[in-house]
Write a protein that binds this DNA or RNA. Structure first.
Length: 443
RNA sequence: GCUGGGAUAGCCUAGCCCGGUAAGACGGUAGAUUCGAAAUCUACUGCUAGAAAUAGCUCGGGAGUUCAAAUCUCCCUCCCAGCGCCA
């Protein structure tokens, strides 16, 4: 949620930011007209209530003296009628106004590239040495800023669903039978590789001062609505029938709402927490995209980084989050690029977002594996997360970033490290898997 | 799931039975005092509207009774104790 006082006092900034995002400016106009009416009504309402308070105080003293109060009662009754009439209108205006306010997105950071659609995000850097199929060279060079760090391969790389079939690593069909499309059974060494990835990620973040934890996989409406936006409710979230519970779409949701309503000591900040959880997503807007395999599924596992910090430090911690994630992909030996996501493609909570995209040889494309956002005070305000500063309580800043979305990374490992009759396991994972290859009939 | 107890401001706590301006410690900020600090004293110390004076709101959440609700009634959430069930 944006700062309503700031919105009133610095309209131009919000109009510019919203325009760059392609946000409907009529919503801002409507907000301001409702807010004006709300403030006018509030003034009137308060004078009514003041009048009433004076009379009830009189009644109180008359009652003590044992005198008659019937006339005053009638007067209060009249005022009460006026109050309840106006209050009804005011509540209506207030809830409409607040609903609109909740739609207004965070202010953009200054270095966010401006764009209308999606394809104007800016390359930050490319790192690694990608295996690029000879027909995909142009794609690669365009996506990597004309990098020369790649190796051409003449044989078309096999896609992950074929590899999973070949080495007996998943059962998509039966998952479809019992749950529907976009589900999977992970089997054998692919499943063990996932466990290894999770353990590796947990150790990795633990060494970088994150408190690692397993959060609740379901949270209530109040927490969810504070942690995310309307769009996510519509597109992503599963609701539990009969209970006030939603399945989390990322560990960010419980990690953010964990401290809702709390006031932190300044000395506790920064607070680095990490959550490992399954993520449940309806993928309502993704019909027909990435329908094969385990690339885009309704349930996947993810290790998430989350930081609460003081406002003046949040951009440093944004860099820290990106570096942590980047180091993970470097250590796995996966070629990736980092992209500064442009204004039109940014979620409403984020002031700025970097994606890390790994090269997928069979697709001949960089695809997202990490999303790192600085939500500044937007999320903290919705969740009422403050810290005690010298000059009063202030909203903290919150940041989040994927560390490892395991299914996406499994696909990347299979595709990037495929050999003719096995898949090579990244060296850093071998201590966790106990095997260095995935081949035929391996168990 | 059952029975009982509880939730008051940053924190601790009074008020509840018996309805009438939410009292008091602690902590925090500023000032006085001091060479400086401690101690002491004074003021301020939630939210909303307002340039301000000021006014309104605020006792876990919601509804009701009443001229008037922290206080009475009903519903809900969470915490504690005991019992029951359970991986």
């Amino acid at each position: 949620m944006i700062d309503i006082k700031l919105l009133r006092s610095d309209k131009e900034r919000f109009y510019n930011s919203c325009r760059a995002r392609g946000f409907d400016l009529n919503i801002l106009d409507e907000f301001f007209s409702l807010d004006l009416k709300w403030r006018e009504n509030l003034k009137i309402l308060n004078t009514y209530k003041h009048d009433k308070n004076i009379i009830t105080a009189d009644i109180s003293s008359l009652v003590k003296k044992g005198e008659n109060i019937d006339n005053l009662k009638l007067e209060v009754e009249k005022i009460n009628k006026k109050i309840s009439l106006l209050e009804e209108e005011q509540n209506d205006i207030e809830s409409k106004r607040n609903e609109l306010a909740r739609l207004i997105p965070n202010l953009l950071a200054e270095d966010v590239p401006i764009c209308k659609g999606d394809e104007n995000s800016k390359l930050v850097r490319y790192v690694g040495n990608a295996r690029v199929f000879k027909d995909d060279i142009e794609n690669f060079r365009e996506g990597s800023g004309n990098s020369k760090d790649y190796t051409v391969i003449d044989k078309k790389p096999v896609d992950h669903q074929t590899l999973m079939e070949k080495y007996n690593l998943a059962d998509i069909e039966r998952a479809g039978k019992i749950a529907g499309s976009r589900f999977y059974f992970l089997k054998n060494r692919l499943f063990k590789l996932e466990l290894a990835l999770i353990n590796y990620g947990v150790d990795f973040l633990s060494q970088r001062n994150f408190t690692v934890m397993e959060p609740p996989f379901m949270i209530n409406y109040a927490s969810m609505s504070g942690a995310t936006d309307i769009e996510t409710f519509k597109e992503s979230l599963y609701k539990i029938e009969g209970d006030d519970l939603y399945l989390i779409a990322t560990a960010e949701h419980p990690l953010a709402s964990m401290l809702s309503g709390e006031i932190l000591e300044e000395s506790e900040l920064p607070l680095r927490v990490s959550g490992v959880s399954p993520c449940f997503r309806r993928e309502a807007g993704a019909h027909g995209r990435d329908t094969k395999g385990i690339f885009r599924v309704h349930q996947f596992n993810k290790i998430e980084q989350f930081i609460y910090c003081r406002p003046e430090e949040s951009w440093d911690f944004f860099d820290e989050l990106v570096k942590n994630s980047e180091d993970i992909y470097k250590s796995l030996g996966l070629p990736y690029r980092i992209v500064n996501i442009c204004s039109g493609d940014l979620g409403s909570l984020a002031a700025k977002k970097y994606d890390i995209e790994v090269w997928y040889p069979s697709q001949g494309k960089f695809r997202e594996v990490v999303s790192a956002s600085n939500d500044t005070d937007y999320q903290a305000r919705s969740l009422n997360i403050r810290y005690r500063a010298k000059d009063g309580n202030k909203f903290a800043h919150t940041l989040n970033s994927t560390a490892i979305a395991t299914e996406r990374v499994l696909v990347a490992i299979m595709e990037n490290f495929q050999e003719d009759d096995y898949i090579k396991v990244p060296d850093v994972l071998v201590p966790y898997t106990g095997f260095s290859r995935i081949g035929m009939d391996d168990i």
